[in-house]
Amino acid sequence: MSTTNSVILTIENVSKRFGGLLALDKVNLSVKEGEIFGIIGPNGAGKTTLFNVINGVYPPTEGRVKFRGEDVTGLQPFDMSKRGLARTFQVVRPLSELTVRENVTVGACFGREHLPLEKAEKVADEVLEYVGLAERKEMLASKLNVAQKKRLEMARALAARPILLLLDEVLAGLNPHEVADMLGVVRKIRDQGITILMIEHLMHAVMNLSDRVFVLDYGAQIAEGTPQEVSNHPKVIEAYLGDPKVAQRFLEGAA
């Protein structure tokens, strides 16, 4: 595992405003190469908005985003993809009328390496093997079940051969068995040297998996650190105290 100290992604003072709503309020964070960086926070805290700002779905109202030393603020999603950023969507977005293999080939064709079609198809086959969808590659993406669609999202992102992978709740909606499988996949990806930034609601998972955790609440960062540090942080406990059960699970998860 190559956990060096070089910073790969920096968010500096990023704010995002939608009309009267301040979805992100002066967020600062930096992700180091090779780590799994978890983002948690209650619903509506601005986690997905942060992802959207990072990968260029919309520009921040204020602040800068830097990726591998380059200022990428306001670049389009396809520009970010070429620079080695890939992501999955919280609500899966398969290209329904294309086959599973074609879906993943799209990722390889237009991702960081911009492979020609035939090479991209080979990459797609490898990646599908890797995430365990190889037998289903000729199926239409719309015919997969939820767990398979999540894997497909993951495969499509991986086929782009990213440097940084943004995972938006890849565990949501999966049963415990599927969760365990998916966690295995995430670890394997990290072990390949891909840096991972993940949003997750499943506390025990995020606490076990992440090297560092970042907590958002109402668009503002309230804590950052190792899972232990974060789970003992008074503000975090407060933010989650609205739901004592969650707070309890939270603490147990970190232990």
């Binding site: 999603p77 977005r93 009328e97 799209v106």
Partner: peptide, 23 residues
């Protein structure tokens, strides 16, 4: 072609296609 694959990705979900690297 690769070009055509890109077009079909746009047809299926334009916003997702952008995230996948398509302009």
């Amino acid at each position: 072609s690769k070009f055509g694959l890109g077009l079909m990705a746009i047809r299926e979900d334009q916003d997702a296609s952008m995230v996948l690297g398509i302009d």
